[in-house]
């Protein structure tokens, strides 16, 4: 029953973008190259290209988000698509029937693409499996599973600064267990040929079998970031204290918080990334977040070009696939 490749059409082109899992280096590189060609659009006076004119894109958000939803909206508008924004309170529609009903209703409005965020892992696959054949689905984050557009904009940022992935050491620090971003980053980094991917966290914040995902595990920040080219800090949510995963924010910062002094253990030209929103003084010191090695704001602006690339590629695949 399971079909890893529901995201590809019969020609191997992107139809949906649900997870990095099951994709290949060529395809990821194509996304990055296409995004590169879109970066110029934002700097023009008329910040639009007509690629998706007449298409209807629906941002279907079952979980709160401002930044991700906004960058998807900006990306869609720069491609000249019409955008519908739906924020659906999950507590009111916790059951699958409602999710399917919502989907059917929107399909009746001839939506061409869903950009979906949902609290359950697998929600984007579910929606892709139940959408009409002409509809593309882009995963904007499902549970702890996947956030592939975020991972791709992170890859874009890394490539902009470091060039090739071969030879790079990348460390991801923090709450890997609950992070869909980290899961997607690990898959993408490995597919693109990164020499070494490290995760740094206490065991309570690591999935039990994280090593099987192709990472080296560290429990000491200084050891873990030694000689790395890229440091990705993850947001620590306050709920983690209540779930007895950590004793306190204070102890977490003492052990895993990134300060200027600790940053010296990494390569001198190491970049510091964060998918945002950042908790100053919890996982990262303000001096580092605003410092010269931080590329956090660039990530946000590259996010638009990368999402334009993914949207146009999935819609292009539709046209070529002849589904209509």
């Amino acid at each position: 029953m399971s079909d890893q490749n529901i995201q590809l059409n019969e020609d191997g082109r992107l139809k949906h973008f649900l997870t990095i899992d099951g994709l290949n280096k060529t395809l990821l590189t194509e996304i990055l190259d296409t995004a590169e060609s879109f970066t110029g659009v934002s700097e023009r006076t008329v910040k639009k290209v007509p690629l998706l004119r007449g298409k209807v894109i629906c941002n279907l958000f079952f979980e709160n988000s401002t930044r991700t939803r906004t960058t998807f909206e900006v990306a869609a508008k720069r491609l000249s698509a019409d955008v519908l924004n739906l924020n659906i309170n999950t507590s009111a529609t916790a059951k699958g029937e409602t999710l399917l009903d919502t989907l059917r209703n929107l399909e009746a409005m001839h939506v061409d693409m869903f950009v979906v965020r949902h609290a359950d892992s697998g929600a984007a696959h579910f929606i892709a499996n139940h959408s009409a054949p002409h509809v593309s689905v882009i995963n904007a984050g499902d549970g702890r599973h996947s956030h592939p557009t975020q991972a791709m904009l992170d890859m874009f940022t890394i490539r902009r600064h470091k060039g090739e992935f071969t030879g790079l050491r990348v460390a991801i620090v923090g709450d890997i267990m609950h992070s869909r971003v980290a899961r997607s980053q690990i898959l993408a980094l490995n597919l693109l040929g990164t020499s070494e991917v490290r995760v740094i966290a206490p065991r309570t914040l690591l999935p039990a079998h994280v090593r099987t995902m192709g990472v080296h595990v560290y429990h000491d920040l200084m050891e873990g970031i030694k000689d790395v080219d890229v440091i990705i800090m993850l947001r620590l949510q306050k709920e983690r204290m209540r779930g007895a995963l950590l004793p306190s924010e204070h102890e977490y910062f003492q052990l895993f918080g990134l300060t200027q002094a600790r940053l010296a253990a990494a390569k001198p030209d190491a970049i510091v990334m964060h998918p945002g929103p950042i908790n100053r003084g919890v996982e990262i010191d303000s001096v580092v977040a605003d410092g010269p090695q931080s590329v956090i704001l660039q990530q946000v602006s590259f996010g638009i070009a990368v999402r334009m690339a993914i949207m146009s590629m999935t819609m292009g695949a539709q046209a070529q696939g002849g589904a209509r």
């Binding site: 892992s121 697998g122 702890r144 599973h145 996947s146 079998h209 994280v210 099987t212």
Partner: peptide, 15 residues
């Protein structure tokens, strides 16, 4: 099951 598959798929796991 808490194992490689749930780790990768990000499904809440039962050890």
């Amino acid at each position: 099951h808490e194992g490689p598959v749930s780790s990768r798929l990000g499904l809440p796991a039962i050890p």
